[in-house]
């Protein structure tokens, strides 16, 4: 019996079974209690609505996915060099880093309307919100990772007359890699939320916009379909980052 629980079959199939049970239970609940569709649509209703609206859903998903991924990538591209500078330049460590830590505590959701005010409508303010929610977790984790190099490894490198670049590339960076990936995983889950918030504040496209308008018009099933796609995007992006982690960290 113990072997069964550790088997590949149990790991893959059992979660599917519990998910299916949940959906069936939901369906029975809605039908049994005769709940109206605009309050809680049954899974089958969500499914058929999704099919009817598939072109719109696809277009809006594409917009949200684009904002999410772009914002995340810009955050990675800026956060990594900033972290390296904070770790290597003492002046920045005492000036810039405390400011970054303080800014990290600002609730980004509350800043979203201001960003729309400054950057205007279109895709830019959403990418900006995604960038903001992603940036800080990556910086904080990367800085911590780059600072955690064991002294013994630094001594090893110094004893072989390694220069600063070699120490960085051969030791500091690999030591920091797991932390960097932790930061990226936190960031990618926040990224989708950031994009939706950006869309809530003001937009004419994206899944966040679709949820807002469809609930306003009592098209609850459509809102659920959009929600399901958001969840799916979130999960897929997370697993892509985790896949990258597995490829990069092989020890």
């Amino acid at each position: 019996m113990a072997r069964f629980w550790r088997s590949e079959w149990a790991r893959l199939v059992l979660p599917c079974i519990s998910l299916a049970t949940l959906l069936v239970g939901w369906q029975l609940l809605v039908q049994g209690m005769d709940i109206e569709e605009w309050i809680l649509p049954a899974p089958t209703a969500v499914g058929s609505t999704a099919l009817d609206w598939r072109t719109e859903l696809f277009q809006h998903s594409w917009v949200t996915l684009y904002e999410t991924v772009l914002g995340f990538l810009v955050a990675v591209a800026i956060a990594l060099p900033v972290s390296v500078l904070v770790v290597y330049v003492p002046a920045l460590h005492y000036t810039l880093y405390p400011v970054l830590l303080a800014l990290q505590s600002v609730p980004k959701v509350a800043v979203a309307p201001l960003i729309t005010l400054w950057v205007g409508f279109g895709i830019a303010p959403k990418v900006m919100v995604v960038f903001l929610v992603c940036f800080f977790p990556i910086v904080v984790n990367t800085v911590a990772g780059l600072r955690s190099t064991p002294t013994s490894m630094l001594h090893l490198m110094t004893s072989m007359q390694a220069g600063p670049w070699q120490v960085f590339r051969r030791v500091r960076l690999p030591v920091a890699l797991p932390s960097i990936m932790v930061g990226c995983k936190v960031a990618i889950t926040l990224a989708v939320i950031g994009a939706v918030i950006g869309e809530f504040v003001g937009s004419e496209e994206g899944l966040g916009y679709l949820i807002l308008t469809s609930t306003a018009q009592s098209k609850t099933a459509l809102a659920f379909a959009a929600l399901a796609i958001l969840t799916l995007i979130s999960i897929v992006l997370y697993y892509l980052v985790e896949l990258l982690e597995k490829l990069l960290i092989r020890w």
Binding site: S152, M153, H155, T158, S159, R170, R250, W251
Partner: peptide
């Protein structure tokens, strides 16, 4: 430090990656 001196540290300090 010099190339003429080889060091074996207290903990092996092999790089795991």
């Amino acid at each position: 430090p010099s190339r003429e001196v080889g060091i074996v540290f207290q903990e092996h300090v092999l790089l795991p990656w």
